[in-house]
């Protein structure tokens, strides 16, 4: 047993898992309030990361300005997407909505590859590169920052839903759309805000991952990895998304360890989350924290 490696991988798993959790949370936010399954979540990360990259490299802005600009752009982008593309599909069958977001994801991914190329482009150095020693483990400062940002986002979400007016409106809409509407909640606004916030927070995650690994179209695969996390936690539970993300992140890294130490299959860790996904769906389709839907005739 190589304990050092295992420890390192578990720490990596927690850090990546936090990011999975954040993205899964964005996914759940949209699903919960608007009943739309967003297969283009990974592309939000991609677009966010590339926008920030373009601001920093092409326009040579300082990081804070480029980052703020990215956030503003993603906010508007999310609202526009909802208003222009998704609104006509309210009330359509689930297959149409799924296919719409899949179609969007193809368009965005191809557009991004066309504009920025297929290859990984490194992010301009924002933080120092030397690894920091934390409890005997070598950790990159970018990782620590990503951890901090993830926690900040999670706490932010908690306060937003608990205390802000918009957050309450979102929870009301998720609970019962018609009742919320009759009590004066503008469901239109809530839908648009959900997409905007989801796009914005995903972009933050995209920028963070871009800083660590460089930006490339592989980022959109991150959005697919979110499904196991969201399903494991239960599709409509924000807490579940975080827990699910953490479990999937750690599991991925531990299976990489098992693979490299004993099995020697190579690349197994990429596929393990999907096996887990199938098993969860077989034994516990509504995940750990999801509400079971009861159907009546």
């Amino acid at each position: 047993m190589n304990w050092d490696l295992l420890g390192q991988l578990v720490v990596n798993g927690v850090i990546v898992g936090m990011l999975y959790g954040v993205v899964a949370m964005c996914f759940v936010l949209i699903y919960k309030s608007t009943q739309v399954v967003n297969f283009a979540q990974g592309e939000f990360l991609l677009i966010g990361a590339w926008t920030c990259w373009a601001m920093l490299v092409w326009l040579e802005m300082p990081f804070w300005l480029g980052f703020l600009f990215t956030l503003a752009f993603m906010f508007v982008f999310g609202i526009l997407l909802q208003v222009v593309v998704l609104k006509p599909l309210i009330g359509e069958p689930i297959i149409s909505v799924i296919m719409l977001t899949i179609g969007l994801s193809i368009v965005f991914r191809a557009l991004m590859s066309w504009m920025f190329g297929e290859f990984v482009k490194p992010f301009p150095q924002v933080f120092e590169a030397d690894a920091v020693n934390v409890l005997g483990l070598q950790v990159q400062p970018a990782y620590i920052m990503s951890m901090v940002i993830s926690v900040v986002i999670m706490v932010g979400f908690f306060y937003f839903f608990k205390y802000s007016r918009m957050g309450l409106a979102m929870r009301a809409t998720a609970f019962d759309q018609q009742v919320a509407q009759s009590l004066g909640v503008s469901v239109k606004q809530v839908f648009a805000m959900c997409w905007a916030i989801s796009a914005l927070v995903s972009a933050v995650a995209g920028v963070v991952i871009g800083m660590v690994n460089g930006v490339s179209s592989a980022l959109s695969f991150f959005g697919i990895k979110v499904f196991p996390a969201a399903i494991l936690g239960g599709l409509d539970s924000i807490v579940g998304a975080i827990v699910g993300g953490l479990i999937i992140g750690v599991l991925e890294n531990v299976s990489q360890y098992v693979d490299s130490q004993w099995l020697q299959l190579g690349g197994l860790y990429q596929i393990v989350p999907f096996y887990v996904l199938v098993i969860i769906l077989m034994i516990k389709p509504y995940g750990l924290f999801g509400t079971k839907d009861i159907e009546r005739i």
């Binding site: 593309v85 006509p88 599909l89 359509e92 149409s96 296919m99 719409l100 899949i102 179609g103 969007l104 994801s105 193809i106 368009v107 991914r109 191809a110 557009l111 590859s113 066309w114």
Partner: peptide, 23 residues
Amino acid sequence: QGLAYIKEMAIGLAIVLFLIFEP
């Protein structure tokens, strides 16, 4: 040079447009 991407985008766009205008 962007032909491969244009083809891909056309597939996605065709799906999106059909869903919106001719479901």
